[in-house]
């Protein structure tokens, strides 16, 4: 326990620059598969969004050369990667580690906001609803991707564990409960 704000790791600027020329298509393909899977496996998360479940959220990791769009219009979930900020009802910006740490139960969203690691623009209610819905869904991105990776799952898990150790970015759920609750 500490009384200092957790230092949110930032990816080295060189890494961001190196990623700039990479095509976004493979990422968008993975994101589409991931969004279909999330919609199927976590319907409660989308139910929890209520009236905000038909909006677009721009998620802007400030240390990566891309912006993600989560588009929930038309009762579907679509995740995509963009070079420039796409039109959206709400925008959340901050280091990628803040997004992933919050999603994995390592960091508190309000605390990241008070410390200004995260910046919110646009529809504040929608952002709160999204944050609460994701927090309740107890997501584990590594496990979701490992399931998509099929026979490559073992390799993916090992690579993620390495990346996590090297970068300090939280890439899996931290509060997995023994046995879980029914």
């Amino acid at each position: 326990m500490t009384d200092h704000a957790p230092t949110i790791p930032r990816l080295p600027p060189l890494l961001g620059q190196a990623m700039r020329p990479l095509p976004l298509l493979p990422l968008t393909v993975t994101l589409s598969a991931l969004s279909r899977r999330l919609a199927k496996r976590h319907p409660g998360m989308f139910r929890r969004l209520g009236e905000h479940g038909n909006k677009r959220f721009a998620l802007d990791p400030t240390d990566l050369p891309m912006v993600f769009l989560m588009d929930l219009r038309g009762g579907r979930v679509r995740l995509s990667a963009h070079r420039k900020a796409p039109a959206a009802e709400a925008r959340i910006a901050g280091p990628i580690a803040a997004f992933l740490g919050m999603m994995h139960g390592a960091y508190d969203g309000d605390a990241l906001f008070f410390s200004r690691d995260l910046v919110v623009e646009g529809d504040t209610s929608a952002v709160l609803a999204l944050r609460n819905a994701i927090d309740d869904a107890e997501l584990d991105l590594t496990e979701e991707l490992a399931d998509l990776a099929g026979p490559m799952a073992g390799f993916l898990r090992a690579a993620v564990a390495q990346a996590e150790k090297q970068s300090g970015v939280v890439l899996h759920r931290v509060d997995t409960l023994a046995g879980g609750w029914a």
Partner: peptide, 14 residues
């Protein structure tokens, strides 16, 4: 009640 499970866990343990 508006805070995350990360917050709740940490405060309750303390």
């Amino acid at each position: 009640r508006q805070r995350s499970r990360a917050y709740v866990g940490e405060v309750v343990r303390t």
